[in-house]
Design a protein around this nucleic acid. Structure first.
Lengths: 222, 222
DNA sequence: GTGCGCAGGATTGTTGACGATCTTCGCAAC
DNA sequence: GTTGCGAAGATCGTCAACAATCCTGCGCAC
């Protein structure tokens, strides 16, 4: 029984978000309790919180399992993120200062650099950094909370979208447009650019993972 | 011990959302347990869920209290709702059918009628109905979940905004624009109209409840 | 072979009691 | 009057045991 450095909730959450525990896997309280070295009560409360987060599903007397987000739902989540991050970008463009400009430019340059070297995983991380930086700069606590929750439901998809041919390159250009608008202090453009970017990702996911949905796919355009 | 028709979570939630329990009020487990006629364990799990919902704050060994959303945060929440409901309106405009059109037109007519009779409370309810109808028509489950959560954090404000002079009348016209765009099947216009509407509400809240914030208030424009 | 009922096992839900922690209040020292 | 200390009360957190429920597999009738 080691000293509990992280709460049971965080530990379980990390395991689920990282994919260490597969989607749709059962989460038997006693089992989780022993493998994570925490009491059943702690597991219970963690599961309840995670259910409210939308990361696990619990059915009465039937236990909990990791919630499996369908491809259709992933598209919905990306759409919701698109408008919320658009709001954040808008506000970031209103509040941007010099250190913020530097930071954004640095993130973008790093992503571009990593992509040129063919480091897709690294570029994906830089991507996440940029989004996080924009969120931070926006100072919009509500948007940040919501986006964070949505994001953790779809990290699993992150590793799939970067493999779509041409997506990474397009992504960098879209990011460049966002950063340019924010740095220039043009809220409307920043919002539009961010929405375009994430709607494009949603569009790509739809085309890639939802076969036979070509007509609906045209909706992806903003 | 009557048969439990509603879960403890729903009962507590309703009490908080309706304002029956005041913001910042302490929620002692034993106390809530006896007044609501449910076990302490049930109260505990309900509080945990409500914390994740953002309706309650819990501090270790110090108990739970109803979360008090500041005026600033109310503005943030309205902004987030604006973009999410914009997304929903957009999608509703894409999927609208004849029964849906009738329903929307009916809601709008009812609101207009109630307002002309000076029934502000009734008009506010009709307002909520219209938003709910649009959400339903959008078929966007993710947006619906998020908006519902955000909405329950600010219902308390609903009764304040309608008292702002001129807001109700403006609100009806804004709704008319939304409904018109959705019925005409113009997604972009529906999105814009909805955003304009809720950003206006946010703007009004800011002007009314956040004194000395006139410069920032200009941001309310879309 | 197929469907049905029934017992056994597995898992969750609930309860009550106990320990841990925080807060409050009184009291004494300065 | 103020500050510091300590004990008592209040409240939360945890644990173990029990009850309730669901799932599985087997035997039996048809």
């Amino acid at each position: 029984m080691s000293v509990q450095t992280t709460s049971s909730y965080d530990a379980l959450r990390a395991a689920i978000v990282s994919g260490e525990i597969a989607p749709d896997a059962r989460l038997v309280e006693a089992e989780v309790s022993s493998t994570f070295g925490m009491s059943r009560g702690a597991v219970r409360t963690a599961l309840i919180r995670l259910e409210q987060d939308g990361l696990v599903v619990r059915e009465p007397h039937r236990g909990a399992r990791v919630r499996k987000v369908s491809n259709e739902e992933a598209v919905e989540i990306l759409q919701a993120r698109a408008v919320l991050e658009g709001l954040a970008a808008r506000q970031a463009a209103e509040r941007i200062d010099d250190p913020g400009k530097e930071h954004l430019a640095g993130c973008l340059a790093r992503q571009r650099d990593l992509l040129e070297r063919g480091d897709l995983l690294g570029a994906s991380d830089a991507n996440a950094d940029l989004h996080a930086a924009l969120l931070e700069l926006s100072g919009h606590g509500t948007a940040r909370r919501l986006i964070h929750a949505l994001h953790s439901q779809t990290v699993r998809y992150q590793y799939r979208t970067i493999l779509i041919p041409g997506r990474s390159a397009a992504s960098v250009e879209e990011h460049a447009a966002i950063v340019a608008a924010v740095i220039a202090g043009r809220p409307g453009d920043a919002d539009a650019a961010m929405r375009r970017h994430l709607f494009n990702v949603a569009h790509a996911v739809r085309l890639q993972f939802i076969p036979g949905d070509i007509d609906k796919a045209s909706r992806g355009t903003l």
